[in-house]
């Protein structure tokens, strides 16, 4: 029973991690809370669903197409709604992001209608039993595997490649990065592309996991993905991964004892951690100067 809950928590938590990565990467570079990210996640789920149901594409390819679609959407949003505001104060892009979020959510409501859709039944759920205590469903295994592969890929990209170096440099100091010959506009778009692709993948995985896709599905996972990012220290990539997993575990285990306060638990944990360590678990303290 307990191990089962741990697996549930890890599966849910890894989707939070994927969403949180999108928030944290964008925040690391632009210091912007990208509220449209939850709608990118929702769009990703819809693209995946359409690919599987209408075009009968096999699931792995549908996942890739949905990641590519979310990627394009993310970059378009950046170009249209955030780039003109790069020199503005910090709150204007935030409102712009909220505007994009309202826009996409209601567009999806008009196109797809308010009812929830399910992935077709040919996704057979089998339970794999390991030993007497440990069991895991095939969907959970899928979620964990896809998330781990994506996160390892991202870790490699950020830390071992030249592009990753450019992303890190831009996050540290945009002006100096520019002086070193880095095209920061391109790097910012790339960051949005990567973050959005991960968000889209999370959307498809959650859509399969809970077997439901609807225009409003982005709201809570988006909020919790953001909470996970802050929990780990916003702007910090390993922090987002750890934050997501912790959030998923706490939520699932907490729900066993007080199910009606499931959503409150996540936020209570957030506030407690912020009060104990105001920059999140892995965040670094920035020295302030006058």
């Amino acid at each position: 029973m307990f191990f089962e809950q741990i697996i549930n928590g890890l599966a849910l938590g890894s989707t939070y991690s994927l969403i949180a990565l999108g928030y944290t990467m964008v925040y690391g570079i632009l210091e912007l809370i990208n509220f449209a990210h939850s709608e990118i996640y929702m769009t990703g789920a819809f693209i995946g669903l359409t690919m599987v149901t209408v075009y009968k594409v096999p699931f792995p390819i549908a996942l890739l197409i949905s990641m590519a679609g979310s990627c394009i959407l993310g970059v378009c949003i950046e170009k249209a709604a955030y780039k003109p505001l790069r020199k503005a104060n910090r709150i204007a892009p935030l409102i712009s992001a909220i505007g994009v979020s309202i826009f996409l959510q209601n567009l999806a409501l008009i196109i797809a209608g308010p009812q929830a859709r399910a992935f077709p039944k040919n996704f057979k759920v089998t339970t794999i039993q390991v030993g007497s205590l440990f069991k895991i469903s095939s969907i959970q295994l899928l979620i964990l595997l896809v998330s781990i592969v994506l996160m390892i890929g991202l870790h490699f990209l950020i830390n071992k490649t030249k592009i990753g170096q450019a992303i890190r440099a831009t996050a540290q100091d945009k002006e100096t990065a520019q002086l070193m010959g880095i095209k920061i506009d391109r790097i910012i778009s790339l960051t949005f592309a990567i973050g959005s692709a991960l968000g889209g993948a999370a959307g498809v995985l959650v859509g399969v996991y809970f077997n439901s896709v609807d225009p409003m599905m982005g709201f809570f996972p988006g909020l919790k993905g953001f909470v996970a990012a802050v929990l780990g220290g916003i702007g910090n990539i390993p922090g987002a991964m750890v934050g997501g997993l912790i959030l998923g575990l706490v939520e699932v285990i907490g729900a066993v004892y007080m199910s009606q306060y499931k959503d409150a638990i996540a936020f209570a944990v957030l506030i407690i951690i912020l009060l104990l360590k105001p920059t999140g678990l892995l965040g670094q303290k920035v020295q302030e100067k006058v």
Binding site: A81, A88, I95, S96, G99, I102, F103, L104, I110
Partner: peptide
């Protein structure tokens, strides 16, 4: 509501 979202973005871009 679609226009509402769009107008928020436009208003911010025009007058941040």
């Amino acid at each position: 509501m679609v226009f509402y979202g769009l107008l928020l973005v436009i208003m911010m871009i025009v007058r941040p």
